[in-house]
Design a protein around this nucleic acid. Structure first.
Lengths: 232, 232
DNA sequence: AAGTGGTCTAGACCACCGC
DNA sequence: CGGTGGTCTAGACCACTTA
């Protein structure tokens, strides 16, 4: 009962779209027509249309009208936390190495820096219930004053490592997900004796100006992790 | 030049959040204060705040105020199209089998149907430049009147298979991404002789009432596909 | 009671589009 | 030119929170 009028408008139009009464490309009734239909002022109608627009149902063209949008069928929302996934979570992390290195050509290129800049390398193992489940390497641009406290690094997620330097809102991230066969080193670290695939997640962090500030590569045992995404 | 006022408000507040002048949990100035500050009416201020809210920067509590939100650090947007990914695209598909089956217990359970319902099974191979790159199996609830035209099925994506029955807007989808070692059958289909990991994407389609209408499992050669996601 | 955000009105002017 | 959406005003009433 007593939904605001603009919600009524939103749901009425959604219903028409979902039932194919309004098809992609069709025009939505003009705002003035909806004003009359619902007996409300134009701002109220516009509030409803704004919601439909941001949810991807319609788009508006100034001077022409509003149209039903073709939905983005390939878009999904994925939640990825290197320490937690839908079926498991990391309960222990072991620091293998923290060191300051000079990047090789590939790394310098990826981080968009020259090869004489310092980079922090952090290698860790993630454990669940006593068993190693992932091998993790991170490369961070070295900033003066950056604290390298081993105890803090051990359990930190990538965000946490950089968020002392960069406000989290200013952070942009990209993921690259792939399946790979472990090399001998990773097999040893993850106690892999038989054939087992790795789910490899490469995380790349950018600052506000789209300059890379870090790269992380986490190689999960394939029997440990599943990533989940959903539309809407 | 000449951005509307509400955009000015949005960008000013974004700047304050990104520079940590406003931190998560802090209160945003009340609407009336912003009205005075910018010399505009309340609806204009509210339009700006609405944009900040939908972009995840702030949230509002009736009777109290608006607050800076803690950003969702683990949320990514992923584009997945079974026929196209960031580095490759399928240029040919070969139909291995279309048949109507009775589901086994596991499948019946996943589709939330009884075991006496009919299910369409479609098995395909995807090719890129003449080489097989993925093995694809789909299970669809059988609806009377559902056309099973082999030529159409061959190149159809999952959406296309069901969209003749269900308006696309009404479709919800979930993905499960994992890394696996291929079994002997898939090795044969994908010409895998050495060790090679598979990136397996399970797609589950639901109708408006959240009832499953189909499951698809696409097993990609690990050297063929990389999935990409990004924050924002 | 005073302050907050949520809803809504009845206008206005503008830029853009198609005829 | 009339119709469209985009911006904006100066009010109003409400429910809610805090004190």
């Amino acid at each position: 009962m007593s939904d605001p009028v603009y919600i009524q408008i939103v749901e009425d139009i959604k219903k028409k779209v979902n039932s194919a009464e309004l098809k992609p490309g069709d025009t939505v009734p003009p705002e003035t027509a909806l004003c009359k239909e619902y007996g409300v002022s134009r701002m109220t109608v516009r509030k409803g249309l704004a919601i439909l627009a941001r949810e991807g149902y319609i788009f508006s063209v100034p001077g022409k009208g509003s149209y039903v949008r073709k939905p983005e069928v390939n878009k999904y929302t994925l939640y990825y936390d290197e320490m937690n996934n839908a079926i498991n979570s990391v309960d222990k992390a072991r620091l293998l190495e923290v060191s300051i290195i000079m990047p090789d050509e590939k790394l310098a290129d990826e981080l968009k820096i020259t090869r004489n800049k310092h980079v922090i390398m952090i290698r860790r193992l993630f454990y669940t219930e006593g068993s190693p489940v992932a091998y993790d390497v991170k490369y961070l641009l070295y900033n003066k004053g950056m604290p390298i406290v081993e105890e803090e690094i051990e359990k930190a997620t990538f965000q946490e490592m950089v968020s002392s330097n960069i406000p989290i809102f200013a952070l942009k991230k990209r993921l690259i997900i792939s399946a790979q066969i472990p090399n001998e080193e990773i097999k040893r670290y993850l106690n892999i004796y038989d054939e087992l695939a790795l789910l490899v997640v490469e995380q790349k962090l950018y600052n506000n100006e789209n300059k890379p500030i870090g790269i992380g590569i986490t190689s999960y045992r394939g029997d440990y992790i599943k990533l989940q995404g959903s539309s809407d």
